[in-house]
């Protein structure tokens, strides 16, 4: 019983991490039609930058967390301003540019971590555990879940209640039309992409605390993020949350019970979605562009 409860909690908290990583990617994909193939490497770079700050500040975890977020936000801002904006309307070009960027970021991460796997193990609450009945569970995983839920609520509020949110929603539907109505959509792109950088930087440190991180992991995090946005639907935050939950739980339980084929099961699931419902499981209406 405890075993299954642990698996359940692991799945949910893992889903939290996936959501933080993928939420930025889905907004970018929805709004800018750009598949950022450097997203996984940005996650690792965020973790690596966080690790640097962690060491310099003598293990100040909060500084590492927020610092990683801010640095990756600036990196994303510059990336969009200098490179990605040139891929407007040309998804394949965007993919190729981002592949090149991912190689650069991976090398930078290797430089920062000397190619070794690292983990954040701070003292204090973040590094300790709590009791849930008979179960001992780490706070770090709970924190990830809390951050994910807070982020979900924040984004939903912004999307539904603010003008920027309306612009983003309209932009995901039809960005040329939004531009035709006098709104500088490129500025919005800049903001959204910078925000996705902040989230992925945060996620890097969170993931590095929850488990660990290494520069080898860029590819798999990229794939996981892509899976979440494929299943959840382009540009859908709610979809990303639900997809993250599905994938997180699926991964957690299959890894435990059928470890040899757990990847195959998860991938087959994603492939099935791609074939049967390519617009995603949770998208209400498909707008033809």
């Amino acid at each position: 019983m405890i075993y299954n409860l642990t698996l359940l909690l692991n799945g949910i908290t893992y889903a939290g991490l996936l959501f933080v990583v993928a939420s930025g990617l889905t907004l970018v994909f929805g709004l800018m039609r750009m598949v950022n193939m450097a997203h996984g490497s940005m996650y690792i770079l965020g973790a690596s930058v966080g690790w640097l700050l962690y060491k310099i500040s003598n293990h100040n975890w909060v500084l590492a967390l927020l610092g990683a977020g801010v640095v990756m936000m600036l990196v994303a801002f510059l990336l969009q301003l200098a490179l990605y904006n040139k891929a407007y309307g040309n998804p394949i070009l965007g993919i190729m540019i981002s592949i090149g960027v991912s190689w650069i970021f991976t090398d930078l991460s290797i430089e920062l971590t000397r190619g070794e796997a690292k983990a954040f193990s701070p003292e204090g609450i973040v590094g300790s555990t709590f009791q849930l009945g008979e179960l001992t569970y780490p706070y770090s995983r709970l924190i990830v879940l809390v951050v994910a839920i807070a982020e979900l609520i924040l984004i939903l509020i912004i999307l539904k209640k603010t003008k920027v949110g309306q612009i983003i929603r309209a932009g995901v539907d039809d960005r040329d039309m939004v531009s035709s109505l006098g709104i500088n959509i490129e500025l919005i792109f800049l903001g959204v992409f910078a925000f996705s950088g902040f989230l992925v930087g945060l996620a890097g440190v969170l993931g590095g605390t929850m488990v660990s991180f290494s520069t080898d992991g860029a590819g798999s995090m990229q794939m996981l993020a892509l899976m979440v946005i494929i299943v959840g639907g382009r540009g859908s935050i709610e979809g990303a949350a639900l997809a993250a939950l599905m994938i997180g739980l699926l991964d957690s339980f299959t890894s435990a019970y059928v470890p040899n084929i757990s990847t195959i099961i998860v991938f087959s699931f994603v492939m099935a979605v791609l074939v049967l419902k390519p617009q995603g499981l949770f998208v209400k209406e498909v707008r033809k562009q």
Binding site: K86, I99, G100, S102, W103, D107, I110, E111
Partner: peptide, 19 residues
């Protein structure tokens, strides 16, 4: 040791200059 990064940079340049 930054060989991947340089190749990445070359890739980006190539995609713009010699598509």
């Amino acid at each position: 040791r930054f060989d991947d990064a340089i190749i990445g940079g070359l890739f980006i340049i190539a995609v713009f200059l010699i598509p």
